[in-house]
């Protein structure tokens, strides 16, 4: 049990975050969310935008490693 501390923490964290996420989407249906731009008022728009942005940032960053990543002693050579 001790060894799996982090794993079980991760699991329960995932569970709660998913519940909160679902609640936030449901909440969106209960009232009209006013935004500065009308297309952002679509149900779940910020959620969608957040998810896509995050994936985009991580995957593009990972791809950029090809060009930007160097060994730690790069500047000492």
């Amino acid at each position: 049990m001790k060894k799996n501390d982090l794993k079980s923490m991760g699991k329960s964290f995932t569970k709660y975050i998913l519940i909160i996420g679902a609640l936030l989407i449901l909440l969106d249906f209960t009232f009209h969310r006013h935004e500065y731009f009308s297309f952002a008022e679509i149900y779940g728009f910020p959620a969608f935008f957040g998810f896509i942005s995050f994936v985009f940032i991580v995957l593009l960053g990972k791809w950029l490693r090809k060009f930007l990543m160097r060994k730690e002693d790069y500047y000492d050579q």
Binding site: I17, I20, G21, P46, F48, G50, F51, F54
Partner: peptide
Amino acid sequence: ISQLQLLVFAIIAF
């Protein structure tokens, strides 16, 4: 709600 949706779903993406 807007900010929480952005953040929580970004965490879900993670």
